[in-house]
């Protein structure tokens, strides 16, 4: 309980300081909204030209797009601190975290809160709502709970990727931007149904980087659609749980990294 109220305290302080540059904040939130809006417009333009994508309609793709967009934007909003972790190491600020009676991962999370990602979140949410109304999905409480679970699973998945990227910094100090492939690249790939991709690509994003579990499989279940590749329905139902599992696994790696922390300037 103390952990949560303290976290909210940190978040409040962060939001206050971001509000100091109010104009810039509003412009930025708005521009984020536009970036992602035009992003989705591109998807729509492709459908205007080609009409279908291997038995998937525009609104089904929009449904996927909205789901992954919400997860990623929220993960960036909450997990910004992990994203800027290399900076914390270089400036020695991570030392300050180690002298506090709080968990390190917790403090890195509390270090930043990027409210401006609300722009992207609301855009993705908007696309998602329009899509689900076009598709005529009836939101029963069970379905709604499942959706929330899938979103949380997605947030955990992306945060897990951030954690891997941050942990590598314990050894390299510089950030290795290869992880962008899986975060930004993952959102790009996850906007479209996994079934349209080649065999090797699909399996990579299912079993190596478990993106499909937090996006594609839960979406299939919500849409009541069978996987054209014939994967069992059970994958859809357990899908969201893979997110927290993935995050816990990366946190084991994180703890290992903290033990190897060398600090700067002995």
């Amino acid at each position: 309980m103390h952990a949560l109220s303290l976290y909210l305290h940190f978040v409040r302080v962060r939001i206050q300081s971001q509000m100091e540059y109010r104009f810039s904040f509003l412009m930025d939130t708005f521009s984020h909204f536009c970036v992602t809006f035009l992003d989705f417009t591109s998807v729509a333009l492709l459908f205007a030209r080609f009409h279908t994508l291997k038995h998937w309609t525009l609104w089904e793709v929009a449904f996927l797009y909205g789901m992954i967009g919400i997860s990623f934007a929220l993960a960036e909003m909450i997990g910004r601190g992990i994203d800027v972790f290399p900076r914390l190491v270089v400036r020695g600020e991570f030392d300050n975290m180690l002298i506090r009676p709080l968990g390190t991962f917790y403090q890195v999370l509390a270090y930043q809160f990027q409210l401006r990602r609300l722009g992207r979140t609301s855009q993705a949410l908007l696309v998602f709502c329009i899509a689900s109304s076009h598709l005529g999905i009836v939101w029963t409480p069970v379905k709604l709970l499942f959706l929330i679970a899938a979103i949380i699973g997605g947030i955990c998945f992306f945060m897990g990727l951030f954690v891997i990227g941050a942990t590598i910094c314990f050894w390299t100090v510089q950030s290795i931007e290869v992880l962008n492939i899986f975060t930004y690249g993952g959102t790009e790939a996850g906007q479209y149904p996994m079934s349209i991709y080649r065999y090797w690509f699909r399996h990579f994003f299912t079993f190596v980087v478990p993106l499909a579990f937090v996006n594609y499989f839960p979406a299939l279940s919500l849409l009541g659609k069978a996987d054209p590749n014939g994967s069992p329905m059970i994958l859809s139902q357990i899908g969201p749980a893979i997110g927290p599992a993935f995050l816990s696994l990366t946190l084991v790696f994180w703890r290992f990294g903290v033990k190897h922390y060398q600090s700067t300037g002995h």
């Binding site: 540059y21 104009f23 810039s24 904040f25 509003l26 412009m27 930025d28 708005f30 521009s31």
Partner: peptide, 10 residues
């Protein structure tokens, strides 16, 4: 503006 991220992002 002193913080370009808004306009530049746009």
């Amino acid at each position: 503006t002193l913080d370009a991220t808004g306009i530049v992002g746009f």
